[in-house]
């Protein structure tokens, strides 16, 4: 099993069971995943266990994030063409951000 960290910025944190609000705008959870688990599989699992994630982050029908969502992998923006099939390693971090308009 590998340990990965999931971090949510600016939204949802306080609504999600199992996530710890480390600051007013960031919520964090550690998750154990089996060897070979991809980011898509992790997001799918999170969406199934946390309905707000299914509603606002990951579309369970399309199996991809909604248009206003950005996924960072180990603090780097990663192309959506690469992100979903990336196999998670021990110590990896996934950050889920809203792609806000304006400003």
């Amino acid at each position: 099993m590998n340990r990965v960290t999931i971090e949510l910025w600016l939204w949802l944190g306080k609504e999600l069971k199992g996530f710890e609000s480390v600051t007013e705008m960031r919520s964090v959870k550690e998750e154990s995943v089996e060897e070979g688990t991809t980011i898509r599989q992790l997001l799918d699992r999170l969406a199934r266990s946390h309905p707000p994630i299914a509603e606002k982050v990951f579309d369970l029908t399309e199996k991809r994030v909604y248009p206003y969502v950005v996924i960072n992998y180990n603090d780097r923006v990663i192309s959506p063409y690469e992100v979903y099939d990336k196999v998670l390693k021990d110590g990896d971090k996934i950050t889920i951000l809203p792609m806000y308009v304006g400003g």
């Binding site: 600016l10 923006v77 950050t95 951000l97 806000y100 304006g102």
Partner: peptide, 21 residues
């Protein structure tokens, strides 16, 4: 309901912008 404006103003996107560089 669109973005952070109503609740947080345009500054509501500040950290999200940091997150994408």
């Amino acid at each position: 309901g669109f973005g952070p404006f109503y609740q947080w103003g345009t500054g509501g996107g500040f950290s999200a912008l940091y997150g994408i560089g």
